[in-house]
Design a binder for these strands. Sequence first.
DNA 1: CGGAATTCTTGACGATCCGTCAATTGTTGA
DNA 2: TCAACAATTGACGGATCGTCAAGAATTCCG
Lengths: 244, 244
Amino acid sequence: MSTLTRKQREIAERERLILAVARGMLAERGYLGLNMDRIAEAVEYSKGTVYQHFASKEDLLATLYTDTARQRAAMFKRAASFNGKPRERVAAIGVADQLFVALNPDHFAVENILDVSDVFAKVSEERRNVFIHVKTAMMDVLMGIVRDAVDAGDLSLPDDAPLCQPLYGMWTQSLGHHKLAGQRRMPPFAGIDLEDALWRNYTIMLDGYQWAPLSSEWDYERTIERIRQEVFADEWARLHDRLA
Amino acid sequence: MSTLTRKQREIAERERLILAVARGMLAERGYLGLNMDRIAEAVEYSKGTVYQHFASKEDLLATLYTDTARQRAAMFKRAASFNGKPRERVAAIGVADQLFVALNPDHFAVENILDVSDVFAKVSEERRNVFIHVKTAMMDVLMGIVRDAVDAGDLSLPDDAPLCQPLYGMWTQSLGHHKLAGQRRMPPFAGIDLEDALWRNYTIMLDGYQWAPLSSEWDYERTIERIRQEVFADEWARLHDRLA
DNA sequence: CGGAATTCTTGACGATCCGTCAATTGTTGA
DNA sequence: TCAACAATTGACGGATCGTCAAGAATTCCG
């Protein structure tokens, strides 16, 4: 039993190794530079053994993605539970997103690859469900904040707008931002601080929604400082370590 | 000479055929279902002949992309020259974008593929320049509108915000929207009208910028109607034909 | 402890696809 | 008509994915 457990640990360890090597290879040489033979060689196991862990290249990529996606979802959840007004909690989500990307710079590149290589068609049912579960869990967290804001009277949506409309505005901006910021070559918007621009646009949009308290009536810089200290002290430190 | 011209026309015609077939194949079977052998078979020429037209698969994909990108840039240019206030011209850009996507539903899917397969590394210098030229031309058009708005006193940017900041907000939203709307499977935001949500968020954001005239002081629905009739009558009709 | 049963590991192999190029077919011009 | 040139072909080499029979290692049990 003890030996079996040792074996199982070895296998788990090897899986981590494969994933780490694959991640590095992907970051360094891109999607086309990533191949199973090279991975097998790098981890010093045969290809067959690698295929013992992952049913296909897409399966491996999907694992790479879900690993960080889970981390992102967890950070979002923690952000949403920040002790403050709903709009402050939205800011916390923004901080979470920013930190997450800084710590996992190639997450969205992997996401792109998954889109392109139509992973859903090749990945096991089970992993597909993890995908959907993580995504919907994140959405629910965000929707919860909007609902709280409406309930608290901080936000009243115009006309017949659905609850998720302001969310859609932030989500799309985030997506677009990550796409632009993650590109190696980037002719448009060269020379401006994209992170800063994103933040300012969030603020202006939420002010446009009249989501109280407005940026003119509240010190959100202070809020962000608090979030970094109270919620993401660990990540904030890790980020600084990495930069140093 | 006449014969030579005929030959040249044949070649040009064949190139169009190849591109059309490739586009259809891409739409139908995705990136992984697109391969040069199959294209050659479908157009009933040998692979060697296909390679006479395109140096590589990436070269073909890049051509597919630049063809529609050029069209998009042209539509943006026409939109920007709409006879109206700067903010109306922004709306015209929105209409242009909406029409363009409706007419070229897989444009952004191709863009994604280009990102992933690192086309810049494999495509000729000349095509690379076309890329950059089209992108920067579009940016210049948009920046021109913002500048006009500032000059006309319709818009004053807060603090030390750069001229392109509102642009960044709209650009990223557009990118994110196209990404979400273009996905086959889409758990989040299912059931809401994404097009409508995008438009409303644009409006709220520009209102947030205090870009005059505000949506409360101007009938932008009327403006959009005018744009469709005056600038994009042709595309509007084509779209309706296709739907019918 | 010893050998059968089970599990793990390997790398050669078939299949697919990209891009090339020598050979073939077609066209032009004298 | 035929030599020179151009266009076309598809077999081929190389790269990569994923498989699987054979061999190695480990566990189980009398």
